[in-house]
Amino acid sequence: MRYGMVIDQQKCVGCAGCVFACKAENHTPPEINWCDKLIVSSGQFPDVRFEYLSTMCNHCEDAPCVKGCPTQAMHKSEGGLTLHEQEKCIGCKACMENCPYGVISFNWQRPHQEWQENKGLAAGTFTPSAMLAEAGGEGSPLSNPERGSSYPIQRQRGVVEKCNFCDHRLKVGLNPVCVDACPSNARVVGDLDDPNSEVSKLIRKYDGKPLKPELGTGSKVFYIRRYTPENR
């Protein structure tokens, strides 16, 4: 079993629904996006191209971040997922340096520290910390308790974090939240080892390619029907 994802570029409308769904599900701080976008413009006028590429951790087969991590905090797990163990992370940032896709982020500050503030917008209004105490939640009232089943809901300062394909959802038979949130069904997740899975069929049919295939990292997020001249 090897989890993989296909992103259909001609279905993706660039709404960033995946980005926001990921943020809510995984309780990422405002400055960190596990699921993000890459805006590529190329060519010369009048023959210019603009492409919106949704990106996240590619869960590479031969993951450079796993090789570079000195403490095995970044490791390969069931289903070929590349996961991160916060308790082992020493904040050396070797994984960030090694990742050719730039999808690992560092907690420079204590995540969600804005919810610790004791000052309201105006006198008599709720302060963030009072709101947190009232509404409950870990780190912020927006925290998702389900996330806590396999990864700390509230991360520490001085450690990295990245997409884990919503491993807590995969475990109970659900899709990663970015897949379910996509309004145009541009994302499909499945088993790359099963030739009859939808992802395998789509990759075969449209000759799906990962980002930077020349690096040989064995990236498991494939893009199909990109807006390249041959796909017009």
Partner: peptide, 8 residues
């Protein structure tokens, strides 16, 4: 917590 493949 050694990872022998890591230069760091």
């Amino acid at each position: 917590s050694p990872n022998l493949s890591s230069p760091i």
